[in-house]
Amino acid sequence: MLQTDELIVGNSAASKDLKKLIDVVAPSSTTVLILGETGVGKELVARSIHNSSNRTGELISVNCAAIPSELLESELFGHEKGAFTGADKNRKGRFEMADGGTLFLDEIGDMPLSLQSKLLRALEDRTIQRVGGGKDINVDFRLVCATHQNIPSKVDNGSFRADLYYRINVFPIQVPTLAERAVDIPQIVERILSQMGKYDDIIPPEISESGYSELGRYTWPGNVRELRNVIERAVVLFAGKSISGTQVKENLLRLKVPDREEEMNAIWDAADDLSGISLGGIGDPEDAPLPHPSHYRDWFSYFDTIDLRRHLRDIEVVLIEASLEKSDGMVSQAAAALKLRRTTLIEKMKKLMIEKPVAQSSALENID
């Protein structure tokens, strides 16, 4: 069985913290609640917990959101022959299949209220009853749940039982987003390509340093699942070729078939010498007002939500890159322009995977 380091790829601080939590809780029989956005790899965390445990049974997975509510009870608890139309024989449910092992309930936030009380009883008594049966069946299982939803808010609005929430929220594990462990992207990409090579006759592309920089700068709303899609796209478009940062941005993060003759690059090169272009009535850049914090006061008059963490991160990246460009790549001057300590700026550049631009003068580069 694959162990934690093989399932959870990466050596970032966030990944190391996640692995430590898994290693601590895995040997116990404690119920675990895995929290995190869609696509972060919650199922991999559940599998890692099971593989690192001492349980001899199997890991049995159920996606509560993927099974119609009228069928979910039978899927979980099993049924007796004749319990309903089509039940022509006795059938074990997932609880019984997980006897001696681990039951993983993915997207437990979507479990119907009618089943939540039965799940609570199974957790407390370690017994279940099949649909249409009256006999208690003892089951020895370890429960691991996962959700991307805000369960406390569902408790508040009455769509999730408070007693069940407190019963499953024994050992919560928050899985970091891909943006929070962007430094792990090269390792994750390598793993994705190796997995693809096992099943397909592919010629993997080679992603350049600037390409990885663009991948690290992206916010990844779909997390690792979205990254896998991007890498599959890269295999189709750039099989056996090197991928630049521009190609990552233009052809992978935004799906556009690459222009093999690089006509667009020629157009931009020709436009570099143009100056004095009108800003469409906005005026000179110096005349355009900078955004003020108070401008955000009316945000919720127009929008329902704002991803504050990602928004502030994007602003930080843009300002750091602009200051580095203005200072010709001299970190000390860029830090002064941002009113930061030089060491602080260097740490931010590492965290956000921002490359220092090549200085126009090697002498100036040596000074910095």
Rank of each mutant, 00 (worst) to 15 (best):
M196V: 02
E190F: 05
H50Q: 08
K118C: 09
G216M: 14
G281T: 11
N229P: 12
V318Y: 15
I108S: 11
S213Y: 12
P172L: 12
L338V: 07
G240V: 15
H79C: 04
G211P: 14
P205C: 15
A87K: 00
S213D: 13
M1L: 06
V144F: 08
K249S: 11
I49S: 08
M330I: 14
A46D: 08
L193N: 14
I128G: 10
M196N: 12
R310A: 01
S194A: 13
I60D: 15
D314L: 15
K256E: 08
S327N: 12
A336Q: 12
L71C: 00
I243H: 06
L105I: 10
I60C: 09
R181F: 01
E232C: 10
R167M: 11
S213H: 10
F95H: 04
L178Y: 07
V40A: 01
I231K: 06
V175R: 13
P68N: 09
S244G: 07
I354T: 10
E325Q: 13
V25P: 04
L72P: 09
D5W: 06
D184L: 11
R297P: 13
T219Q: 12
N229W: 13
A13S: 15
I203Q: 10
P27A: 00
E75M: 07
N366K: 00
L255K: 03
R181V: 09
S208Q: 15
R191S: 01
V139D: 02
G280N: 03
G133P: 02
S275Q: 03
T246L: 05
R217K: 13
E80F: 10
S323W: 12
E124A: 02
I315L: 07
T4F: 05
R254Q: 15
K19R: 01
I22A: 01
D201T: 08
D272A: 12
K16L: 14
S278C: 02
L279W: 09
R341M: 13
I188M: 11
L308W: 03
G132S: 01
P291T: 05
D284F: 15
V317G: 01
T4G: 05
L338H: 12
S53L: 10
A359N: 08
T38Q: 00
T38P: 00
I203F: 09
R94F: 05
T147V: 04
L319P: 02
K198A: 03
G281E: 12
Y302C: 11
T38W: 04
Q116E: 13
V331A: 12
G86N: 00
I306S: 03
L253C: 08
L215A: 12
W299S: 06
H50C: 13
K326V: 11
E37M: 04
G211N: 13
